[in-house]
Design a protein around this nucleic acid. Structure first.
Length: 290
DNA sequence: GCTTTATAGGCGGTTACATCA
DNA sequence: CATGATGTAACCGCCTATAAA
């Protein structure tokens, strides 16, 4: 895509929000960056700017002003997909779909045939038996079609969307709990169990990972939002305190001149209750100490 | 050992369909 | 019944890792 989203999440606060859901070492850092980017893109309009300073200091230094400009999505939809007619009473053995003829899909199709090169080559160690099996499935039509489906295929209907049955979803979920990615053998086995095409299993896992990630992102966002709110409150409180101190200093200036500079520190912490004791106006706050 | 090429798999973003309120 | 919102299957385009040439 090449579009640089350019959103810089720079609050200067490291809240240490790890992405607990993702433990894949190679993805961890990348995911954190991506999640930060995502949060920023989706929520930057509500993130407060936190500063502590006098009223003259600016607090509008949003560093994440680079707006996300989408590149035009020029997708060619060559939908030649035939799913199961909605409402059809399909069981585990009745759902599947055909794919389209795009290059991407061809790539997938090739991969399903157990390509021996590239990354999959080393991992798809099912060997000849595996490849033959897939070939057979592909060309013998292990897919079980209903009459309705056959009609659909003949009529080259627009893409129909398959709905997974509860059993299929449950099995996929169980499998996902075990491992959120599949190797080719696992994919093939699962596809066979579910009577789906391996590509469908693959897509399901991709979408499932995306959903997990989105949920995690939303949870992270809620956490950060709370953090920001409390920091905003803290910021306001501290600003009020600064103003109070300024006022005290002004009114008490002649008096304070009589003392050494070290005794002008009026901000102390009560050791027992950790409340701040500020100036003479609050000296009665903590009688425990006195 | 290196570059190039082909391939697989993952992800982000998107579309389109099904379902529900 | 129409409609908007939501969930999700399926897709495209891109990137990266890997293996073979």
């Amino acid at each position: 895509m090449g579009s640089n989203n350019g959103a810089i999440f720079n609050t200067g606060l490291d809240l240490g929000l790890g992405n607990s859901q993702y433990h894949k070492e190679d993805d961890h850092e990348i995911n954190n960056i991506k999640i930060k980017k995502l949060i920023c893109l989706r929520y930057d309009h509500i993130l407060p700017s936190l500063t502590l300073g006098t009223s003259s200091s600016s607090s509008s230094d949003h560093q994440y002003g680079d707006h996300h400009h989408h590149t035009a999505v020029d997708q060619v939809h060559d939908h030649d997909l035939h799913g199961v007619r909605p409402g059809a009473n399909y069981s585990l053995a009745t759902v599947s779909s055909l794919s389209n003829s795009s290059t991407t899909t061809l790539k997938r199709e090739r991969s399903e045939l157990g390509g021996s090169r590239g990354r999959g080559g080393s991992r798809g160690s099912g060997g000849d038996e595996f490849e033959v099996e897939v070939e057979l499935e592909r060309f013998s039509g292990s897919r079980v079609s209903t009459n309705d489906e056959l009609l659909d295929e003949d009529q080259a209907s627009p893409r129909k969307k398959l709905r997974l049955t509860k059993q299929q979803s449950a099995l996929l979920e169980d499998s996902f709990k075990e491992h959120n990615t599949l190797n080719p053998k696992q994919k093939q086995d699962l596809a066979r169990k579910l009577n789906l095409r391996p590509r469908q299993v693959e897509v399901w896992f991709q979408n499932r990972r995306a959903r997990t990630k989105l949920k995690q992102t939303e949870a992270d966002y809620e956490l950060m939002k709370k953090c920001c709110e409390s920091l905003t409150e803290e910021n306001k409180r501290l600003q009020r305190e600064v103003e109070e101190l300024k006022a005290v200093k002004l009114t008490a200036a002649p008096f304070l001149l009589q003392f050494p500079s070290t005794s002008t520190a009026t901000l102390t912490i009560c050791p027992s209750c950790t409340e701040r004791i500020c100036s003479s106006s609050s000296e009665n706050k903590c009688r425990k100490v006195l």
